[in-house]
């Protein structure tokens, strides 16, 4: 299945740093996403990213993960030659990721 079926996401930027939130639709799926979406998995999904570090932050109370991709935006909105200089499309492209289905659960959210 696609990550799109389990989570929604929003991209932002500060300077040349991209900032992506991934939020589980169902809180019960948060541990599954937390296990899957490591910084290495994010880098593997975006092979053309410049080599800056990727930090992950966990926000369990909002069943959300935050990825900060340093130096990922080729200079950012005021310098980059990219059409999407903000990296606004990164979140949607991340949601295309093929992921295994979460373990079946009877949890009612």
């Amino acid at each position: 299945m696609k990550l799109h079926e389990l989570a929604h996401a929003r991209s932002g930027d500060k300077g040349s740093t991209a900032d992506i939130s991934v939020i589980a639709y169902r809180p019960a799926h948060y541990p599954h996403l937390r296990a899957l979406l490591t910084p290495d998995r994010i880098r593997a999904h975006f092979p053309d990213l410049p080599p800056g570090p990727i930090h992950r932050y966990e926000i369990p109370s909002l069943h959300a993960l935050k990825f900060v991709l340093h130096d990922a935006l080729d200079g950012g909105v005021t310098r980059s030659l990219r059409l999407d200089a903000h990296g606004k499309s990164l979140a949607a492209c991340l949601l295309e990721m093929d992921v295994p289905a979460p373990p079946t659960t009877d949890a009612k959210d």
């Binding site: 939130s21 939020i23 930090h55 932050y57 926000i59």
Partner: peptide, 16 residues
């Protein structure tokens, strides 16, 4: 809840 979650975390980098 979903729109507020997206915006609360928007561009904050380290949420703590």
């Amino acid at each position: 809840l979903a729109t507020v979650t997206e915006q609360l975390l928007y561009e904050v980098h380290d949420p703590a």
